[in-house]
């Protein structure tokens, strides 16, 4: 049993890999952990600030990161040398960042994702159960309700944005033995509703646009995570809502509230409930439950 703290993970030596002539991929660990992710965040933020000549893209991911560069200006080995020295210097427990905490209302077991998942039963591990029923049982929950309470019961950190613009991968901010883990679909679906809440591996994803997908489907949010025309006020600075390092709190809502929020979103009048906080990894590692409570107070 866990003592309620986040067990720190000793990371292996990073793997520095060439991606053709113009990318470097760095895998910090094969397994997901807050240590691996915070290190990826810290190194990528640091390398951006160093404004090394020749950088094109700097993208943190869950337990790794990816850099594109102009090899005419920066030799890949020179870049890797720089990354190695950052890797030595950075201690994630000293590292802090400004995170936004977002309230994300979710209608779990909604009619739209339920229709979709029923259409693709033959691609699923358990054709006779819904994705929620399957995941609840696999993770040892007595009921779907208890499973939903768990998913909505502690906030999730955005550990990567990608696949398509604005899609957040989120890792629940609880000790490892409280984390949900589920397989992806055996064969990916060819359809997923927009704003679906999915889960695969150890990650929750919010699908910004309709499309293919392999994550288990749990619900749908009425709010957007991508607003290409930047009409909603929360999108003034960017067409995507969360950044890596932000925190999402999934809040279970009913159909009535879903419809109300959706109407406001479609009108362009919806005001997201979010606040900026200073995130301190060390405090979170020591007492995640207490720290999460404190984080969520800003949404009241």
């Amino acid at each position: 049993m866990s003592d309620g703290t986040i067990t720190r993970q000793e990371l292996p030596s990073p793997r520095y890999e060439y991606g053709g002539d113009d990318w470097v991929f760095v895998e910090l660990a094969e397994a997901m952990s807050f240590d691996a992710n915070f290190k990826a965040q810290a190194i990528t933020q640091e390398i951006r600030q160093n404004s090394l000549e020749g950088l094109i893209e700097v993208a943190p991911s869950n337990a790794s990161y990816l850099i594109q560069f102009d090899p005419d200006v920066l030799h890949p080995d020179e870049l890797i040398e720089e990354l190695r020295s950052l890797e030595d210097e950075i201690d994630v427990s000293d590292y802090q960042w400004e995170a936004r905490v977002f309230d994300i209302p979710v209608l779990y077991d909604d009619p739209w994702t339920r229709d979709t998942l029923m259409d693709f039963r033959e691609r699923h591990q358990d054709p006779d159960a819904t994705d929620l029923e399957y995941s609840a049982e696999l993770n040892g929950f007595d009921s779907v309700e208890a499973f939903i309470d768990h998913h909505a019961g502690a906030p999730h950190m955005v550990t990567m944005i990608g696949f398509v613009p604005g899609l957040p991968f989120c890792f629940q901010m609880v000790p490892r033995d409280e984390q949900i883990e589920v397989p992806k679909y055996e064969q990916p679906r060819t359809a997923t509703p927009s704003r679906a809440i999915g889960f695969g591996g150890a990650f929750t994803a919010i699908y910004p646009v309709p499309g293919a997908g392999g994550y288990q489907l749990y619900g749908r949010t009425p709010v957007e995570v991508l607003d290409v025309d930047q009409e909603l006020s929360a999108f003034e600075e960017s067409m995507v809502l969360p950044n890596p390092g932000d925190i999402l709190n999934f809040r279970q809502i009913d159909r009535e509230e879903y419809d109300e929020i959706r109407e406001a979103v479609e009108d362009g009048t919806y005001e997201y409930n979010y606040e900026q906080v200073e995130f301190e990894p060390q405090a979170f590692f020591e007492d995640p439950r207490g720290y999460n409570e404190q984080l969520l107070e800003v949404l009241d």
């Binding site: 991606g19 990318w23 397994a31 952990s33 990567m160 890792f171 992806k184 150890a202």
Partner: peptide
């Protein structure tokens, strides 16, 4: 590894370079 999913070709979700070969 934790978080990767069960298939032999699954990894903890990571960045794909343009030009990369993914095995799906």
């Amino acid at each position: 590894p934790f978080g990767a999913g069960t298939d032999v070709t699954n990894v903890v979700d990571l960045g794909y370079p343009v030009g990369s070969i993914q095995m799906a």
